[in-house]
Amino acid sequence: MHLRVTFVAAARSSSLLAERFEDDRPLDQAGWYEVQRVAGGLVPLAAAELRYCSPTPRSRATGNALGYAPLVQPALRDCDMGRWRGFTLGEAMAREPSAVDAWISDPRSAPHGGESLLSFISRVGGWLDTRPVDDGGRVVAVAEPSVMRAALVYALNVQPSAYWNIDVPPLSTLTLAGRGGHWNLRLETAPAA
């Protein structure tokens, strides 16, 4: 039996330029508006047998606003950014430019004292691989965009550097189908209007 895991990117809590590492801010007004605007297309995912979310306030709020009543999954937390937690990329670059360069160029590097990109991808992949196929065929998980990028890199078994080339807009979806260690990207057709 195969499992279908659909990730939904959490709604925004700030503008893209103000995004912070391990951002714990709740949804802002724009985020709430976005959820209401697209809810019709995402609410049907609540029919999934299992519903999860990242532990961030915006992931929980997004899942609840969509009627998922998701269970928080610590393994779906954002990458541990150590001393850069709460910084924007620009702030980290201004304080430690060579450390940021090392972190971006070497997936095993963790100059911030937190988790390396490779460890983060492996953690998210481990969560995917341990989803019990017999507990249900469909899973929905509201997560931070970074978690979705990590899941995609893991599932497609591509170089970790591909992580930096994936854009995940708020409230976008990603569906992976398969089972532990064998995942495929599943592109969905848009429902007829």
Results as ranks from 00 to 15, higher is better:
residue 1 M to S: 12
residue 1 M to L: 08
residue 1 M to T: 13
residue 3 L to S: 11
residue 3 L to E: 07
residue 4 R to H: 14
residue 7 F to I: 01
residue 11 A to Q: 07
residue 14 S to R: 08
residue 19 E to C: 09
residue 21 F to Y: 15
residue 22 E to G: 13
residue 24 D to L: 15
residue 24 D to H: 14
residue 25 R to M: 08
residue 25 R to C: 08
residue 26 P to F: 04
residue 28 D to Y: 06
residue 28 D to K: 06
residue 29 Q to N: 10
residue 32 W to D: 12
residue 32 W to L: 14
residue 36 Q to D: 14
residue 39 A to M: 05
residue 40 G to A: 15
residue 40 G to N: 08
residue 41 G to K: 07
residue 46 A to R: 12
residue 47 A to V: 08
residue 48 A to G: 05
residue 50 L to H: 04
residue 51 R to V: 08
residue 52 Y to Q: 06
residue 53 C to M: 04
residue 61 A to W: 00
residue 61 A to L: 07
residue 61 A to K: 00
residue 63 G to V: 04
residue 64 N to V: 12
residue 70 P to T: 05
residue 72 V to H: 03
residue 73 Q to L: 08
residue 75 A to G: 02
residue 75 A to C: 04
residue 76 L to Y: 01
residue 78 D to V: 05
residue 80 D to R: 04
residue 80 D to M: 01
residue 85 R to Y: 00
residue 88 T to L: 00
residue 90 G to F: 00
residue 94 A to D: 11
residue 96 E to K: 01
residue 97 P to L: 03
residue 98 S to V: 13
residue 101 D to G: 12
residue 102 A to F: 05
residue 102 A to D: 11
residue 102 A to S: 14
residue 106 D to E: 12
residue 108 R to Q: 12
residue 111 P to F: 01
residue 112 H to R: 02
residue 113 G to N: 03
residue 113 G to T: 09
residue 113 G to L: 01
residue 114 G to P: 09
residue 115 E to H: 06
residue 118 L to D: 14
residue 119 S to Q: 11
residue 127 W to N: 05
residue 127 W to R: 11
residue 128 L to K: 04
residue 129 D to F: 03
residue 130 T to H: 13
residue 130 T to G: 14
residue 133 V to S: 12
residue 134 D to L: 15
residue 143 A to K: 05
residue 143 A to V: 13
residue 144 E to N: 14
residue 145 P to I: 06
residue 152 L to G: 11
residue 156 L to G: 12
residue 157 N to P: 05
residue 158 V to I: 13
residue 167 D to N: 09
residue 169 P to E: 13
residue 170 P to Q: 09
residue 171 L to T: 13
residue 172 S to N: 10
residue 174 L to C: 14
residue 175 T to M: 10
residue 176 L to R: 06
residue 177 A to S: 15
residue 178 G to Y: 00
residue 180 G to K: 09
residue 181 G to E: 11
residue 182 H to I: 15
residue 184 N to S: 15
residue 186 R to S: 15
residue 188 E to I: 15
residue 190 A to Q: 15
